[in-house]
Write a protein that binds this DNA or RNA. Structure first.
Length: 493
DNA sequence: ATAAGCACGC
DNA sequence: GACGTACGTGCTTATA
């Protein structure tokens, strides 16, 4: 698989990663205005779908020739554009070599402890049945707890709680977590609904769904990593999505115990980039204070709190650090004072002051943001350290909403995208050095790599992984990777 | 089938 | 005065 010459999906994605689809049919239509025969015209859909081998040979022949023809035409059309836009290194040194790395990871698969999930399903199922009964009792009637519409009727019509917000699209009365959390101060039902929502989410999306995804031949779960979905250059994972396995709550973390080593003599190794996006921002912004802090190996959120609150780093309170941490993440996304207030414990006024002092202490950050937006206005796009590009057609839009959205992307995409470039480079180098080893790279979760490592190879692999991740790209700040080993994914954290 | 609302991750 | 945090996937309900 390493002798691939070109890939039309990836080529078109690098030329413009903001598009909806890169499949052959879409690209043929877009670039040649040609409507190909769709596969469903040959094999049908749903229950009546047949195998391609059952398609009459004449139809199969012309279909296949059309595929080959347009693949070649697209290659000839896309490659010069790749060269013009200086995307060759990104294509040839990162995205193309990554194809086989991802293929190997998908094929390697992940072992899931289905017995453990079965037990967890019973446990959470019992808790849910109990909750369900209590909620019906408290409401004086039964309704579908999974229906936001019916819940709205109960909360706002029957129990007379105050509806504070409408949903963005349908305009119905919102019952999302922030609303229910507020209402939980004055009533049991919203509090219990929050618990119900959390547990049903865990049970339906993970606990009950994952065992169904175990491959009958291998006994393992094989996700698909998609290389041409995210507009920032990140990967995505589907069927199942193994990039959103719970970790925040104790109930959710239990699920990570089900991700286990494939053999008696292997372990799970997890390697995490520490604060990678803030480090990249410090690098781009060339901000003296933030760079110095990373060079000293400080806790960046404590340093931020110390600067903003004007106290010694050793005197920062937990509450101050919490607020600084929220602010640091919000800054990466280009948040407003209002947004920060919504997200944190800060009031609107406190948020405004916080952001003002933040930019006084980290002047480089402010000028990075202004420069990014200015660049986008002048050029119509922004890009990462490795020339990955994203177009921002709305950067000068009349609509305030559309324009501000484009401005936030102008700030965030180069940071998030450079982090994506970096871990992709590390993955390629690691895969190269793992050749001949029994251990497997099995997952990528944006700033984390997960391995199923044989104990005899543990020390060697730890060294390879740490080195290749930390030295994939050179920044003005040191890059730190945390390693952890365990008998499941939770222990390896 | 598709949209809406919601919730999980980074 | 608007507007109000980036990138994803998947579940269930409601509607067509």
């Amino acid at each position: 698989m390493d002798n691939l010459a070109f890939d039309t999906m990836i080529g078109a994605y690098l030329l413009d990663p903001g598009k909806r689809a890169y499949d052959l049919d879409s690209l043929a239509l877009e670039f040649f205005n040609y409507k190909k025969v769709s596969i469903t015209e040959l094999i049908g859909t749903g229950k009546k779908q047949i195998n391609f081998s059952q398609v009459p040979i004449e139809k199969a022949t012309s279909y296949s020739c059309e595929d080959a023809d347009f693949t070649f035409r697209l290659k000839k059309h896309l490659e010069p554009k790749i060269i013009d836009m200086k995307l060759q290194p990104l294509l040839n040194d990162i995205e193309m070599p990554l194809i086989s790395v991802l293929g190997d990871m998908e094929e390697a698969g992940v072992r899931i402890d289905t017995n453990f999930l079965g037990e967890l399903s019973k446990e959470y199922g019992a808790k849910l049945a109990e909750l369900e009964k209590k909620i019906y009792d408290e409401c004086g009637e039964e309704f579908n707890l999974n229906s936001p519409q019916q819940l709205g009727r109960i909360l706002f019509d029957k129990l007379k709680l105050k509806s504070t917000r409408r949903t963005a699209k349908g305009g119905s009365r919102a019952t999302s977590v922030d609303i229910l959390t507020k209402l939980a101060e004055e009533h049991h039902v919203p509090r219990m609904m929050l618990e119900y929502r959390q547990l049903t989410k865990l049970k339906s999306t993970y606990i009950d769904a994952l065992p169904l995804m175990v491959n009958h031949r291998t006994g393992l779960v094989h996700t698909s990593f998609n290389q041409t979905i995210a507009a920032t250059g990140r990967l995505s994972s589907t069927d199942p999505n193994l990039q959103n396995i719970p970790i925040k709550t104790d109930e959710g973390r239990e699920i990570r115990k089900a991700f286990i080593p494939r053999a008696d003599d292997s372990k799970i190794l997890s390697a995490d980039y520490s604060q990678i996006e803030l480090r990249i921002m410090a690098h781009f912004a060339n901000d003296p204070m933030m760079i110095a802090s990373f060079q000293k190996g400080e806790d960046i959120h404590r340093r931020t709190a110390a600067e903003v609150y004007g106290v010694d780093i050793n005197d920062v309170t937990p509450a101050q650090r919490r607020k600084a941490k929220t602010a640091n993440f919000a800054i990466i996304y280009g948040v407003s004072a209002y947004g920060l207030a919504q997200q944190s414990e800060l009031s609107f006024t406190e948020s405004k002051d916080f952001i003002q002092v933040y930019f006084e202490r980290y002047p480089g950050i402010k000028s990075y943001m202004d420069r990014s937006i200015e660049f986008a206005r002048n050029n119509g796009f922004v890009s990462t350290m490795f020339n990955r590009r994203r177009y921002l057609p709305d950067i000068s839009a009349k609509s305030v909403q559309a324009r501000q959205f484009a401005e936030r992307i102008a700030i965030n995409m180069p940071i998030q995208g450079t982090a994506a470039d970096m871990i992709k480079i590390a993955m390629i180098h690691i895969a190269q050095r793992m050749k001949g080893m029994k251990s497997k790279m099995i997952l990528q979760v944006h700033d984390e790599l997960v391995f199923d490592v044989y104990t005899g190879e543990l020390e060697k692999l730890k060294n390879i992984v740490k080195t290749e991740m930390e030295y994939a790209v050179e920044l003005k700040v040191p890059i730190k990777v945390d390693l952890a080993v365990g008998n499941n994914w939770l222990e390896a954290k």
